[in-house]
């Protein structure tokens, strides 16, 4: 099994601690969303995983070994880092060719990944003339080049048009369905909610969460129930009796915080209040994420005022 194992990872850049004793495992067969505010340590973790940065303490292994020791590293893990990371003077095809040679990757893979990423038509154009979206696709092509069982993509949706974002979503789902290990960092909560099965959240270098998506949302949000009733007066009294306050909006729809639909249903049935509609609100990942990171920031700020933002 080719998991990514991050163990007790710490990385200091001078006096700044970018990653602070983080441990988690990214497992194959699912898309793992890698979240956290800017400067949380996501990119640093990925760079250490690829052997680009040396950890201060701890280690990252891929499939049980350090990335650096892989005989053909591009066949073990593919990575997208800062929009392609290619020299502008080279054509897209030549960029891939230079990478393929170094890892003994068969030539046909170049054509395959160019087709996969929709870059066939511009393969002979210099990378310097590419838009951000095209560079992003080239970076993904490079990540896929070695047909690796592990993929680490740092903000792959950056600069992509809506069509490209849909393409990335389907690509990630497909790679995970193949049984690959897919770690994707993103600031787009809506996209992450649609693609990821599991979440790893960092905040100020610390691990804030490592849970399935559904558990994460449930843990970091409070329930809300929506309902309609024909007897608002009686319902208000009923709620007041259990310490809840509520009022209908202009459309006659009620939104009750901190209570589940099931509990409201029980109360209404016991009180004999007819309900026309009763549902749990769908809490968004964004909401849950912002709540978690806001708490974490506050916690860190009160605990450690000296280190600043």
């Amino acid at each position: 099994m080719t998991s990514i194992d991050v163990r007790d990872l710490r990385k200091d850049y001078g006096p700044i601690r970018a990653v602070d004793d983080v441990t988690f495992t990214v497992r194959p067969g699912r898309v793992t969303g890698f979240l956290g505010p800017n400067g949380a340590g996501k990119s640093t973790t990925l760079r250490v995983a690829l052997g680009l940065d040396r950890p201060t303490t701890g280690r990252v292994t891929i499939g049980g070994r350090p990335y650096r020791s892989a005989p053909q590293p591009l066949r073990l893990a593919g990575a997208l880092l800062d929009a392609g990371a290619a020299l502008g003077a080279r054509t897209a095809r030549d960029h891939l060719r230079c990478l393929a040679y170094s890892n003994d990757i068969p030539h046909r893979r170049i054509a395959e990944v160019l087709a996969e990423t929709g870059l066939e038509a511009v393969a002979r154009r210099r990378v310097g003339t590419f838009s951000l979206g095209m560079r992003q696709r080239l970076g993904i092509a490079a990540a896929l080049l070695g047909d690796p069982p592990v993929l680490m993509l740092d903000e792959p949706t950056n600069g992509l048009d809506p069509e490209g974002i849909v393409w990335i979503r389907e690509l990630l789902r497909r790679l995970a369905a193949d049984g690959r290990t897919v770690l994707v960092s993103s600031h787009l909560m809506g996209e992450t909610a649609r693609t990821a099965d599991h979440l790893v959240v960092l905040g100020r270098g610390r691990l804030l969460a490592d849970t399935p998506m559904a558990d994460f949302i449930a843990a970091h949000s409070s329930p809300r129930a929506y309902l309609r009733t024909t007897e608002p007066e009686r319902l208000r009294d009923l709620l007041a009796a259990v310490g809840l306050a509520g009022a209908p909006d202009g459309d006659g729809r009620w939104c009750l915080p901190d209570i589940t639909a099931a509990r409201v249903g029980e109360l209404a049935a016991a009180g004999g209040v007819p309900l026309l509609e009763l549902t749990d609100a769908q809490v968004s990942l964004e909401e849950a994420y912002l709540r978690l990171t806001a708490d974490a920031t506050q916690y860190a700020a009160t605990r450690n005022p000296a280190t600043g933002g």
Partner: peptide
């Protein structure tokens, strides 16, 4: 353009 990162990812 960060080309070294990709080069070192290919040949660590």
């Amino acid at each position: 353009g960060g080309a070294l990162r990709m080069s070192l990812a290919a040949v660590p």
